[in-house]
Amino acid sequence: MTDSAKVDARIAVTFTDHCFTRDRRQGDAADLAFPGCSRDDGVFCLQRYHHSLQAPAYIRDFHRAVAWNLKGDETYAVIPTVTQDGQAQHYAIIFSLDRVRGVEGIDLHMRVRTAHPRTERDLTTYGSIRFAHLVRLRRENQRPRRVYDSRRRKPRRP
C-alpha cells in the first residue's frame, strides 16, 4: 500500500487461530476441539470462521480505514459489518504492525492477533489514526501517540 508520505510499503500479513476459534463453553461438542490451539481449551467457532473469510478483503481495504489505539503495541481496526441475520455490528481486527529487517521486498509485518464480531463490551481505545499514516509511522519505527483525554473519540456502535 501507499503510506501517508506517498511511499509504497509492502506488508506481510499473518493470522493466529484466534480469528476462527473461541474459548470452550459448557455444552460444546467434543469434535469442536481445535488441536494445537493457542487457547488453553479452544474450539472451532463457525461464526468467527465465517467472518475470518472476509478478513483478507477487509485488510486490503485498510488504506481507507481508521485504526484505534489499544494498550501495548497492538492496534485495533473496526470494520462495520452485518451479521448473518442482517444486523449491523462491528468486526474487530486486533493487530500489531512491525518493521521487517533482512527480508527482501517486505517492509512491515502485520500480525493479526484476533478478529471477531464485537458483540460484547467495548474495548478501551486511546485515539485513532488513519491506517496509511500508521504505516508511515511504523515504517519509520515510530508509534502513534495515545490520547488519554476522557473526551477522546471512540468507535461508535452501529
Rank of each mutant, 00 (worst) to 15 (best):
P117C: 13
V13P: 07
S52P: 03
L137K: 02
I59L: 10
V112C: 15
V78L: 13
L134Y: 09
F34T: 08
R138S: 06
R138T: 02
R99W: 04
H50A: 00
A57S: 15
R146S: 08
A115M: 08
R99N: 00
F62L: 14
G27C: 00
R111I: 05
G127L: 04
A77E: 01
A132V: 15
A5R: 15
L123E: 01
R22Y: 15
H90S: 00
H50E: 01
R10G: 08
I79E: 06
D98A: 10
M110N: 15
F15L: 13
A65D: 15
I79W: 09
R60I: 02
L123Y: 12
G127C: 11
D122L: 02
G102R: 01
I106G: 03
D3E: 03
A9R: 12
A67H: 14
D122K: 12
E104C: 02
R25D: 03
V100F: 09
R25L: 12
M1A: 11
Y126C: 04
E120C: 05
T83C: 02
R39W: 08
S38M: 01
G105H: 01
F20D: 01
T14F: 07
S38Y: 03
D8S: 14
S150I: 15
S4E: 05
S96H: 03
Y58M: 14
L97F: 10
G105R: 02
V43A: 04
G105N: 06
I11M: 07
R24S: 08
N141P: 03
G27W: 07
M1R: 06
T75M: 02
F131R: 11
V13Q: 08
D85A: 07
T114E: 12
I94R: 07
C45H: 08
R157V: 00
A12E: 14
M110R: 09
P35V: 04
H63N: 13
R143I: 04
G36D: 13
R145S: 11
A9D: 06
V100H: 09
T114N: 08
L108T: 05
E74I: 07
K71G: 12
R24H: 12
A65N: 14
A55D: 13
F20M: 09
R10N: 11
D17N: 09
S4D: 00
V147H: 01
Y91F: 09
F95L: 08
V43M: 08
E120L: 09
I11Y: 10
E104P: 04
L70K: 10
L137W: 04
A12G: 09
V135Q: 05
K154W: 05
R101K: 15
I11H: 03
D61S: 10
R151S: 06
R60D: 04
K6Y: 13
A57R: 15
Q47A: 06
Q142K: 04
R138M: 08
F95R: 06
R153F: 03
D85E: 14
L53C: 13
H133F: 02
A30W: 14
G102D: 00
G36R: 13
D107P: 09
K6A: 02
C19Q: 05
A132P: 10
R99G: 00
I79P: 04
V13M: 11
R130E: 13
D17Y: 12
Y126R: 01
